[in-house]
Amino acid sequence: MDKAYLESWLNVGECVNVQMPNEIFEDLSKAEFKSFNHKCFAYAYYYLTCYLYRNALYGGKTDQYSQQNIIKVFTSNKSSVSYITRFEGVLDNMNYTKTTTDYPVTYYMYDGILEFGLIKELRKKMPDLEINHSPRFCVKEPIKGMTRFDGEDYTGTFYSFQNTHKIDVNQFITIVNDGKLGHVGLYLFGYINMMCDKFSKYRVTNEELAKMVGCSERTIQSYMVRLEELGLIKSTKVTLNCKTQKFYSV
C-alpha cells in the first residue's frame, strides 16, 4: 500500500491521533508470540485498532476496514498472524481487544466526556438503515482505550493520557510504508518515544536496548539508523567506560 492510499484510508486530515498505553511493551513481552516480528505486528495492529475505533471510521465505507484489509497493511500472509488477531486470539486473551459486531459509526462529546454512537443503537432508531458490509463483519474494540484501571469506565487511553505515548498518524504511515521499517520499526519507534517522554534525552547502548525489547543488536542498529535517516529520531553518541551509548530524542 502506498502513502497516498494510506492517507486517504485513514482520513488523515480529519482524524485525531491516539495514545498508546506504556504498559503495552511489558504486557506484550509476557505473551506468547512465534517471533519478535509477530510481537511487533501485535503492537502495530493494536495502534491501528485504536485509531480506527477512536475516529469511528467504520461509519463510512465499512468493508474497507475489515479485519482482512487491516492485516494487509502489515503482512501479505494473513494466516501466519491469525493466532494474534482472531476471536480469542492473543490480543483478545491479553484483554487488549474484544471482537464485536457493535462498532462505532460516530463519536461526540457529552458533558465533556467522549461517547461513541454504536451501530446497533443506530439500527434501532433507523430500522430501514442499509448495511454496507458483509453479514460477518466485525471489528476489534480496543479495551485499553476504554478502561485500564480496575475495570472502571472512562479510565482508558481515550480519556486519560497518563502513562501513555503518542505516535502521530503521519509518523505511523511513514514507518509502516517504509520497506526497511514496517511494524518492527513502529514498535522500536514507539519504545523510544515512550522513553523520551520519561527522559528529555534517553541514554542507552544498542546492547541494552536490544535486551529491553527482545531482539538482536544488529536489528537495533539497522532500524535506528533508518529511523534517523527519515528524521523520526535523533541521536548523539557518547563513550562511557569504553562502551558507546547514544542519547536519543524524538
Rank of each mutant, 00 (worst) to 15 (best):
M1H: 06
A4C: 05
Y5F: 13
L10V: 04
N11T: 06
E14N: 11
V16K: 13
N17R: 04
Q19L: 11
P21E: 07
N22D: 15
E23D: 15
E23S: 14
I24P: 00
E26R: 12
L28R: 02
E32R: 15
E32D: 15
F33H: 13
S35P: 09
K39L: 03
C40T: 10
Y43A: 05
Y46V: 03
T49W: 01
Y53A: 01
Y53K: 03
R54G: 03
G60M: 09
S66Q: 03
Q68Y: 14
N69V: 00
I71R: 15
V73F: 10
F74N: 02
F74C: 11
T75R: 02
T75I: 01
S76T: 11
N77Q: 09
K78V: 12
S82V: 02
I84S: 02
F87A: 14
V90H: 07
L91A: 04
L91Y: 06
N95A: 08
N95H: 11
T97R: 03
T97S: 13
D102C: 11
V105Y: 01
V105K: 07
T106A: 14
M109L: 12
M109I: 14
D111Q: 11
I113A: 10
E115Q: 15
G117I: 00
M126E: 15
D128S: 08
D128V: 04
E130S: 10
H133W: 08
S134Q: 13
R136M: 09
R136T: 14
K140C: 05
P142E: 04
T155E: 02
Y159G: 11
Y159Q: 07
Q162S: 08
T164N: 10
H165T: 10
K166I: 14
D168G: 04
I175F: 00
D178S: 04
D178Q: 04
K180M: 10
K180A: 06
V184G: 02
G185D: 04
Y187G: 08
L188M: 14
Y191R: 07
N193D: 07
N193W: 03
C196W: 10
K198G: 10
K201M: 15
V204I: 14
T205F: 01
N206W: 10
E207L: 07
E208N: 06
L209V: 04
M212I: 09
V213R: 08
G214F: 05
C215R: 05
C215A: 05
I220G: 03
S222W: 04
S222V: 08
M224Q: 12
R226Q: 13
R226D: 00
L227Y: 00
I233M: 01
K234C: 10
T236M: 11
V238W: 06
C242S: 14
Q245V: 11
K246G: 07
Y248Q: 00
V250R: 14
